[in-house]
Nucleic acid binder design. Structure first.
Lengths: 253, 253
DNA sequence: ATAGTTTCGTAACATAAGTTAATTTCGCCC
DNA sequence: GGGCGAAATTAACTTATGTTACGAAACTAT
């Protein structure tokens, strides 16, 4: 059976970078994704800080983000949730959410009940490992963001973010050649890498003028990925995609 | 039985902020900590980026940190590991470490084999939940660091870090009144919050001059915790210590 | 104690990034 | 297809933070 078109398609593709799943595993994942799906419109909230944590959300389509707002309005985007990403495999252990999750684009998500998750992991050793891997990778990404914001220059920070998003999208088959969608406004990028909008704009101009990227409409093209990686010290090892995350064929354009 | 003096003392204390453990749970934890302990001297590496991940490490005593180094020598400290902290409950799923772990002070740690961990979690539902909570809190801390470095001013960043370390130490009984150890050099603080050493020094002077803290030798005193929290927008909810992480009695001085 | 080595403290100066504000371009809706 | 609001762009100016450098203090080891 081809898993193109399965609701859990992107998640399955992602997990297969770590291990190959049996048809049974994939079927179970897909079933779990069908129990309850929800459509949320663009720039809307999925979960609020202070909420009681619910079961697991799987992003089926669209972009979301975790974010936190300070009292005076400053906002930090803490993570991007792309198709195939699971939010919070175990949060229900906590008493309340310490941050919010909002959409960037319109999003379709599957709400997988805690009980279904339990069944998935107890009955499928391989799958259970793969899900564990997925949450370790999410943690590794969060660590890398700390490094990115803490140590890198504006140019490197922005380039690094673009590399990461591109490679993550490629890992789930959402790139065409060296192009992918980038539905973020410059204000959102600014809140992601801790810069002002104006400086994001300047830095974007710089990345363009040295010929490393194009960004028009909501479409990003990375002209020379290798060069960009070098220029911004992007080492994809933290994504744990095997074989360094490079040379993974994307779906052809 | 009193668990003062148990090797896993600090871990037990920490977990009990989340749930109360049975004597059986505590005994199992303590036994697991006794299997293999190791002593590492100050400013030495425990784990190197690129290493094959091993079983779980539990910090029994002393301070360690996760860090990452860029090619040109810039370094970011990604997390502090304090007594009672577990490193990497499931890393063995990954093929290689994407960052290093080094000591700040001399450290005693327990290496808990993967198999022992499995037994711990499968035989003790309560404990298993508590360990899950501990890893969710670690992730929440990492997210908060992203916010801290991304959005806050130097003054807030540093104050926030000090609040966090103080509250975490208090949660395991390692404070005396409003004082705790802070065995970090200013260079290490700088690499933690993404500032230069000089600016850390300036900012420290500022925190002192407004009477919020004292820091001499390796001893930190927070004179007015509430005031400091307000001044730097430190909201301890992300530590999920129940009751907001305040009013937890520390061991008396 | 003494010498050597970190760490801390400060000053003078340099610069990356923030702010404000005005203009242009883009995407969308009637 | 014109008008409206959001997003992007640019310029001029400000500021927080970085850099370099040097001396003082605090540890460490003999």
């Amino acid at each position: 059976m081809a898993w193109r078109g399965a609701l859990a398609e992107f998640l399955i593709r992602k997990l297969e970078h770590f291990t190959s799943l049996s048809n049974d595993d994939k079927h179970a994942l897909d079933q779990a994704s069908r129990q309850r799906t929800r459509r949320i419109r663009s720039r809307d909230d999925i979960v609020h800080e202070g909420d009681l944590p619910q079961g697991v959300n799987l992003i089926l389509d669209g972009w979301a983000c975790r974010y936190k707002t300070l009292e005076d309005g400053r906002r930090q985007i803490i993570a991007y949730l792309l198709p195939g990403d699971l939010c919070d495999q175990n949060v229900s252990v906590l008493r309340e959410m310490d941050h919010s999750i909002g959409t960037v684009t319109a999003v379709t998500l599957a709400e997988i009940p805690t009980e279904t998750m339990r069944q998935l992991t107890s009955g499928h050793a391989r799958l259970s490992q793969a899900l564990c891997w997925e949450s370790l990778v999410a943690a590794a990404i969060q660590r890398e963001w700390t490094v990115n914001i803490g140590q890198r220059t504006a140019f490197e920070r922005l380039g690094h973010l673009l590399c990461e998003l591109y490679v993550r999208l490629r890992a789930v088959g959402l790139t065409q050649g060296n192009t992918c969608e980038l539905p973020l406004t410059q204000a959102e990028i600014a809140d992601t890498i801790g810069l002002s909008v104006v400086h994001v704009n300047r830095t974007l101009q710089e990345l363009r003028s040295v010929g490393l990227i194009s960004l028009r409409g909501r479409e990003l093209t990375i002209h020379r990925l290798e060069a960009l990686q070098r220029a911004v010290q992007f080492n994809p090892n933290y994504l744990h995609l095997g074989r360094e995350g490079r040379h993974l064929d994307s779906n052809e354009a």
